[in-house]
Design a protein around this nucleic acid. Structure first.
Lengths: 340, 340
DNA sequence: TATCAGTGGGAAAACGTTATACCGAACTTT
DNA sequence: AAAGTTCGGTATAACGTTTTCCCACTGATA
């Protein structure tokens, strides 16, 4: 592997010292240099297509110039959107983004220790699959930011306006005339789920609607979990006329469960999900959703950690771009009650 | 930022020289050392939780210990699967995987030059959004492997058994009795699409079935493209009784298009897609698909590039794990022909 | 003519790692 | 007893950066 030209090559070509090249290229403010020399150096660097070597810089500066991303599942559409936002924000500052594994508690601890210690990244963005011990362990060596979660074990977190999103979903359904509204949750352990549920129940109470525990079911993050949850919700006796799904992926499963049971959406059951995704418009029926600024979440998270703006371990930042209702075909006014 | 302990700290704690620690820890085969000393060094390293610093190593070895991944879209479910495979294979060898941007031709060239020159990665895996010039440019500095494409501009590529996958889809439909089969393609420029179409037409001819050009439509990679393509396919006069979709994402759009036009699937139209994904089972109806070893593709790609086994620029590797038909609800025997 | 301030830049030391070369002591052999 | 020969390590020089300190001039001033 041939080494690319370094500062020494540029210096030799320009007939100056290595340190001068470095100071010119990094824009040392306290440097006085003849303009002709500066141009000569700049030309030499351009001629050789010089690119600073990150390892040399990292070694000297004790900064890697890269962010790590710990994701439960890269393929999750919500994660993908967050990742895209983070990548763009990182790239805008010349920082690289590297993919760390989903933190399997088994091999995860060792892998995480290694990642934290080997100096490859300056900070960690953590998406989903939160584990207090693991996060605290990593945070002992590196700045860590939990994305989409509350602060945990002293590790700061950044969140979306989850309560407002759920409340907006309820408002939409109530506006259509629904009074019997259920909730299909995500993983009950996740803070985002908890807060969406909180927003849901608060919005119900605010309108004097009844909160029925048997209409609140939770699962995990996959479509299969949504499927199971909706199955439980539709079991007799009695079912709601509308459902808020905490997550659009689970909602796809939930929709399938309704279809399998012959429950017409939106004829007999209105469904609205939190988060938008490419497939929502192609579901049968197209899903009404509450859109949240996922990309902005990723971008802000990356910026916070690059700036070191974590404000102490107690702080939980909030991205409160307003939730936006995207009305498609899965919600309608409730059917007139049928006795039986 | 406190620097973590380095070799020097371990050496000091064990009372030996830095070089001895390095040779012990890297397992220098030509090293003779007293067992007690070795244990002392190992203990010291463990006590300090020593982790080798990648920048120091990269500088010395002129290898970064990381792979770059250029992806059109991280969120694409197929890409996600490939990425997961690559990440696991890389992690198994202690290599990191870093996300490079989608190669926007505008800022992409500069970003790619930088990535290639700054020594952050030892090789590049390129997923989708292929651009001959850009790839060749990167390949001048780094090993580059196009994943899911033929070799282009002297850059090697690794592919799946796309022809066989399409042929298997045709075989399934023909076995059900279909004789009028259409094709919903992906981007016509992509090699994978071209080869799936080739496999499709070859399989038709092999069975003496007619290839009708007006039943072969292509778009791009998204669901919207599949939607538009299916719309064109279903326009009068005359439509096929079955369709092979080159891509499961596009197929979701295609399914929606059929639904909008009141064409029952699989009653009036059977649909089978190439590639499986989590949502395929939750479509209405659940999609019959041909599954291809995407994760293995990612893993093999990572291994090839880590091994430097690119075998010269002319070579196009093939992952020929057998395509597998996953039968769900979107295919059935054709309806008896209705005159009119 | 010394001295002084400014101008324009250079020398060298880190950062953490690895590879090559070497070296002192203890043992063995002749 | 002198000369090899292992044994068990050490010294040192890179790799490419950045940064701090220093130095050689030049012209002006005392």
């Amino acid at each position: 592997m041939r080494r690319p030209p370094g500062l020494a090559a540029v210096a030799a070509r320009a007939g100056v010292s290595v340190s001068l090249v470095s100071r010119i290229l990094t824009g040392d403010p306290g440097l006085r240099v003849r303009e002709s020399t500066r141009q000569r150096v700049l030309r030499a660097a351009a001629d050789l297509a010089y690119v600073p070597h990150v390892s040399g810089r990292a070694l000297r500066l004790a900064r890697a110039g890269a962010l790590g991303l710990v994701a439960r599942d890269v393929g999750d559409p919500m994660h993908a959107e967050i990742i895209q936002g983070a990548r763009l924000a990182a790239a805008a500052r010349g920082q690289a983004l590297l993919l760390a594994g989903p933190p399997e508690p088994a091999a995860g601890a060792a892998a995480l220790d290694r990642l934290a210690g080997e100096g490859r990244v300056d900070g960690l963005l953590w998406l989903g699959g939160f584990d207090d011990d693991l996060a605290a362990r990593a945070a002992a060596h590196l700045p860590v930011l939990l994305v989409g979660d509350r602060p945990r074990a002293g590790v700061p977190g950044i969140r979306l306006a989850d309560e407002r999103a759920a409340a907006l979903a309820v408002a939409h359904l109530a506006g259509l005339g629904h009074r019997d509204i259920g909730f299909v949750g995500r993983d009950a352990a996740g803070d985002a789920s908890v807060r969406r549920l909180a927003g849901f129940t608060a919005a119900l109470r605010e309108r004097g609607l009844m909160v029925r525990e048997e209409w609140i079911v939770s699962g995990g993050w996959g479509a299969a979990d949504g499927h199971a949850a909706m199955g439980a919700l539709l079991a007799p006796p009695g079912r709601p006329s509308a459902v808020v799904a905490a997550d659009v992926v689970g909602c796809v499963g939930a929709l399938a469960a309704a279809r399998e049971r012959g429950v017409a959406v939106p004829g007999e059951l209105s469904v609205v999900a939190v988060h938008d995704a490419w497939f929502a418009a192609y579901c049968a029926p197209p899903l009404t959703v509450v859109r949240l600024p996922l990309r902005e979440l990723g971008g802000r998270a990356a910026e916070l950690i690059m700036d070191g703006d974590l404000d102490g371990p107690a702080c939980g930042h909030l991205i409160d771009g307003p939730p936006e209702l995207v009305r498609r075909g899965s919600t309608a006014a409730p059917a007139p009650p049928i006795t039986g």
